[in-house]
Design a protein around this nucleic acid. Structure first.
Lengths: 230, 230
DNA sequence: GAGTATAAATGAGTTTAACTCATTTAGGGG
DNA sequence: CCCCTAAATGAGTTAAACTCATTTATACTC
């Protein structure tokens, strides 16, 4: 039996220790979807004791949420700036959709944590993640509103349902991928979603043209009748 | 202090006891979203001991899953027969969507249990609920396929994405309602979803007409030029 | 109607993981 | 070099899921 390793009691600044714990928690959260005993695992990994973790985070849940929040904040930074460089309702919508799909694709474990665990429980609405997501979907709806204002989209678009179908669709589409089964292409998926949604909400451009052309047809008929009668 | 009630040891047939436990579990699952100590609560409600519950269900999870399965099976019975009485791609799609929305509306607690708890964990795929849902969405895709075959819908419809957007959209739409906040109307929601999706996937009927009319316009121009030149 | 076999039910455990707190001790300031 | 602060400890408590040897209601036999 190996002699029990004498613990070296090392003192870090609170900030450094907290960073260490969060980094370690992030790694473990990505490595496995089993959250049982994760506090013990973190402590063991860092060579500290469980109680020390609780000096920095009141509960396990707080720790996990803060890790997820930090990650998500970094992940969603700057989309606004990127979006500013894209013009056209369709392209802008596609960008928002594609970006969300890309997050799913690049960080399945974290996304699953957010979607399946954090979002399910009571305090989710008090979470930064909820706020960030709200902003993101609000931005998406903003694009739709602009499209309506310009006449490019129908005036009677049910706004929140468009949002629900886009983001609900994304989540459903990635469901299997998030648990390590199957693949998906963010580009392909974004194309497919945008194709359905855009056609679904675009103003019937053709209807005006059709009306004009129907008129043309009638005039032609009269014209030809007049001229052939002569 | 009230004298401790002498427990009356009553023996039921296994079937009867199992039914009792499941019924009680169902009531508690509907009454609260807190699953901690639910086995103890069931035992107390039935005047039995926790260990007795475990004689009928190997784990708490098994009990909950079986309750949810029984409920869902009853809930989704017969949709196939009802669907048979509805004709037209759009109406049939709307029926499937409306029905799913109605389940959400009538049994928010159970739906939340299935969506937020059962679907999140590993064994979900082995669940009857998963199978029933698969059949349901397969049936939906069947309707879309028929629409494509008849030429009513575009040939390039991304089938699974249509499914994901419909059912993901439904879930997103009901999210707040499922946790007791806000309302929604299954009828309105079904209309909105079907409006977006159907327009999104319908074949462009107008395009052929447009092409013909563009041709008419050119002929008219030539005709008028010829005749006014004279 | 008494004796007995069966299995339903018990209740006193164990286990595991989250969380608490009185005590210990590293390490910088005087 | 000592002392003070607060970081870290480790030995708890709590809570809930789950186990199992024992008890006992009930149906069946004779």
């Amino acid at each position: 039996m190996a002699a029990p390793q004498a613990r070296r009691r090392e003192r870090l600044s609170p900030a450094a220790r907290k960073t260490d714990i969060m980094r370690c928690a992030g790694a473990l959260l990505r490595a496995s979807d089993d959250r049982d005993g994760i506090v013990a695992a973190i402590a063991q990994n860092l060579g500290i004791v469980e109680g020390t973790v609780y000096r920095y985070f009141p509960t396990k849940r707080d720790l996990i949420i803060q890790v997820a929040e930090d990650w998500y904040e970094g992940m969603l930074a700057d989309y606004d700036r990127e979006l500013a460089g894209i013009s056209g309702t369709r392209a802008r919508l596609r960008f928002m959709i594609w970006r969300h799909l890309t997050v799913m694709h690049d960080e399945p474990a974290m996304c699953r944590l957010v979607l399946d665990e954090l979002r399910a429980d009571a305090g989710y609405r008090e979470t930064t993640i909820y706020q960030l997501n709200r902003l993101y979907t609000q931005r998406t709806l903003g694009i739709v509103r602009e499209g309506i204002a310009s006449g490019e989209l129908r005036a009677d678009v049910p706004l929140t349902m468009v949002r629900d179908m886009i983001y609900g669709g994304i989540e459903h589409h990635c469901w299997a991928y998030l648990r390590g089964e199957g693949k998906f292409s963010p580009e392909q998926a974004a194309d497919d979603i945008v194709a359905i949604v855009y056609r679904g909400i675009a103003a019937p451009e053709e209807s005006g043209a059709l009306a004009r052309l129907e008129d043309v047809a009638k005039r032609l008929e009269r014209f030809t009748q007049t001229h052939t009668a002569t």
